[in-house]
């Protein structure tokens, strides 16, 4: 059992959890993920690390309520425990001195881009960050991102805060404005696809972090397989970072939908059970 030492809501549907995980906290690196199983009947779901603290022996997870598992996670409080927590999994992000790096975080993807931006900044890169959300209420960690960026651009889809529009618009402007050595985009698959399409004409290496459906997370099942440059890769062990220009996005989108019906059925059943409890 892994104890939650702090928990808060970052937005109505996005939860921040700091979890006691001594061994993982010592080994974690930016870009890696963990697999959690909330309770004894739970699914195994991957969550990219949002932060860790080796001294405090904790890791930080940021999860958005989507299906049964993330809703169950949302109900837990400080002092409660998560049944299983495995990690750190996947290959760490490449952290080198590239020059100028644009870090794009969309929605809940703002959380995992934060440690990547921090590590790249620490390495001596100039960091231009672009973070976006659907509206003002869904935006979080602007302050954290500011603290690790030389420049921070914020967008909301509806214009309720900062600049109105999608993250790809300022991304394009930055690419036109100055020489960019690398772009890293983490967020919804559709956002990562369009960031990759935006950077392609500029020929700037673009890294995306794929959060496929997984079971074991150690290369055993192949559930998370995707196609990169025409070759099948497992997101769990070959990634989660991949070259966004080489990813076959249609396969990414299709494979995300495999269990849509079952996820809906599971959630409806769980919600009905919750009503019965209160």
């Amino acid at each position: 059992m892994f104890k939650i030492v702090a928990k808060e809501k970052l937005t109505p549907l996005i939860h921040y959890l700091r979890v006691k995980a001594p061994a993982i906290s010592q080994k974690a690196k930016a870009g890696q993920f963990v697999i959690i199983r909330v309770d004894e009947v739970g699914e195994r779901i991957p969550l990219t690390l949002a932060d860790w603290d080796a001294k405090e022996e904790t890791i930080t997870l940021v999860a958005m309520e989507v299906g049964t598992s993330s809703k169950k996670l949302g109900l837990l409080k400080a002092g409660d425990s998560i049944a299983n927590l495995v990690g750190p999994l996947g290959l760490p992000s490449d952290i080198e001195r590239f020059g100028t790096v644009v870090c794009v975080g969309g929605g809940v993807g703002i959380a995992p881009i934060y440690p990547v931006a921090r590590a790249l900044k620490h390495e001596g890169n100039k960091i231009i960050s672009i973070i976006g959300a659907r509206n003002k209420d869904l935006l979080f960690w602007e302050d954290r991102m500011k603290s690790v960026s030389d420049e921070l651009i914020v967008t909301t889809d509806d214009g309720s805060y900062a600049r109105k529009g999608l993250v790809t618009e300022p991304l394009k402007e930055v690419l036109q404005r100055e020489k960019i050595d690398r772009v890293i985009a983490i967020g919804p698959a559709i956002m990562m696809k369009f960031c990759s399409l935006t950077t392609k004409p500029f020929n700037v290496p673009t890294i995306v972090s794929l959060n496929s459906i997984m079971v074991d997370g150690t290369g055993m099942c192949g559930c998370c397989r995707i196609s990169v440059g025409g070759v099948t890769k497992f997101a769990c062990v070959d990634g989660p970072d991949f070259d966004g220009h080489q990813v076959d996005w249609n396969i990414v989108f299709d494979r995300q939908k495999v269990y849509l019906e079952e996820e809906k059925q599971s959630l409806e059943r769980w919600e009905a059970c919750q009503c019965g409890k209160s």
Binding site: V215, D216, M220, C221, G222, C223, R225, I226, S227, T232, I251, D254, R255, K257, V258
Partner: peptide, 16 residues
């Protein structure tokens, strides 16, 4: 066609 939805490795199928 091996990455189509509905194709499982036996490992994934049995693990699930």
């Amino acid at each position: 066609g091996e990455n189509l939805n509905g194709v499982y490795s036996a490992n994934e199928f049995l693990t699930r």
